[in-house]
Design a protein around this nucleic acid. Structure first.
Lengths: 247, 247
DNA sequence: TTACTTCTCGAACGACCGATCAAATAACTA
DNA sequence: TAGTTATTTGATCGGTCGTTCGAGAAGTAA
């Protein structure tokens, strides 16, 4: 959807409640969020271009004003998701000292993202193989950067002697179990993001054998920020907050 | 593919190397294993009926002699996978005492299945939403039975006071992190099933806070069977052991 | 108003989808 | 051998796929 930005002219002075630019941006978000819903529900290949258009309430051809292809729609969803996820993760560990503390914050950010944006997360996690060529490379780059952040946090802890060294296995296990949240989490269920954060941070610390001077690190003993701050940073504009109207 | 079994006549006396029955069974396995490969590589909806036929080296119409529809192909793959997984899991914990031991065995069986049959596992894990109606119900039933086995093993440990109670979260986290193996495991990589078993069992015990009289349970202190026995039981005939020839 | 840009539309394109069927072939039986 | 059954085939069905295009509606600027 890069073309859209390029197509935009210089910022207009006054913009009415439904000026063209506002309408256009709304339509673009509508399209992306509807696509996210459908892709998460039926998969990329299981969703037709007409399904999206109908659910979004626009003509099929209108989509091609915003995206050059169906693939570009998917790429845009993944790029936005991964960008927010990565930015939030880096912000969460910034200025935090201690390997255990940093890991707990990273887990918190990750859990926040996946509980707040389960559908976008599912699409990003599931539909990787649907991407091809350069588009895939671009998205892989973003994902790798995020995984590298995890790697840094864990490796630092291993170097400090706080975590047990399990090679890449621990990182993969941690990422799988926390990313998996998006696949079973129910936003209207009993567990809130804060409770899940506590549970998963506790499990993660145990899984990594977190210890100081031989004593296991207790989550309660760590000084961490509030969940609210983490939740703010994972806000994703394309996450569908309800079923598309035309569905 | 139930029809095939029904179509079979009474067991013939002598059966040549390429008798009808043998040929037919080979073709059926070829079809299922080729489908497994392609579904794991491109997804169910991303794979065409012609892709399968070409890769398997048969005519498109030949498939419909074995399966009534493309969906039935998927259902059969999932059913076979889940059946082997569940049977192996139950066999692994049978006659094993102690919650920690049972969990370690269950993890071992699960890890064995996912390292030996990564493609079938990926399909079973990924393509759930592609199934519809009664077929979906049948497969869900199998999956629920297996998850219930995990639930039993974990709950028993909680009841014994060996595991910490984290509600359903721990089970979901454990299943996600171990099932995820199929998504990154490389059969030609450095890590073998036995090493992975040790790693994941250790992590699982830690994650559940496994302890006896306040002391953490060490994996090395448990008396467990050999990996070989577990590996035997997860043998899956439809797992593609190499790229389909016609591809 | 007119001129221009942004946005949306219905209709159509060729390609491919899953599925069907009568006919041909291969294996087995009597 | 001829006859029977099990297996495989090529051709083809209607439908849906992602994409394109010219026209027109809506909004902005003069």
């Amino acid at each position: 959807m890069a073309p859209t930005a390029e197509r935009r002219t210089a910022t207009p002075r006054g913009r009415a409640a439904n000026s063209k630019r506002v309408r256009s941006e709304q339509t673009e978000l509508n399209l992306l969020s509807t696509s996210t819903w459908l892709f998460s529900e039926r998969g990329f290949h299981g969703t037709g271009i007409r399904d999206i258009a109908d659910a979004a309430g626009v003509a099929v051809s209108a989509m091609y004003y915003y995206a050059a292809s169906k693939d570009e729609l998917l790429e845009e969803i993944m790029k936005r998701s991964l960008t927010v996820l990565d930015d939030a993760g880096r912000a969460a560990v910034a200025d935090v000292d201690g390997a255990a503390e940093r890991l707990a914050m990273l887990i918190g950010s990750h859990v926040a993202f996946h509980t707040r944006n389960p559908r976008a997360a599912r699409v990003t996690d599931h539909e990787f193989r649907a991407l091809q060529g350069p588009a895939k490379q671009r998205v892989v780059k973003l994902r790798d950067a995020y995984e590298d952040l995890w790697n840094q946090v864990i490796s630092a802890g291993v170097a400090e002697g706080v975590f047990v060294d399990r090679g890449a296995t621990a990182r993969l296990a941690l990422l799988q179990m926390t990313t998996g949240i998006a696949h079973w989490y129910n936003p209207r269920g009993a567990l809130g993001p804060a409770e899940l954060w506590a549970d998963f941070a506790t499990m993660a610390l145990a899984l990594l054998g977190a210890n100081r001077k031989g004593k296991p690190v207790e989550l309660a003993s760590l000084e961490l920020g509030s969940p609210a701050v983490l939740l703010e940073r994972v806000e994703l504009s394309i996450e569908p907050r309800s079923k598309p109207k035309g569905l």
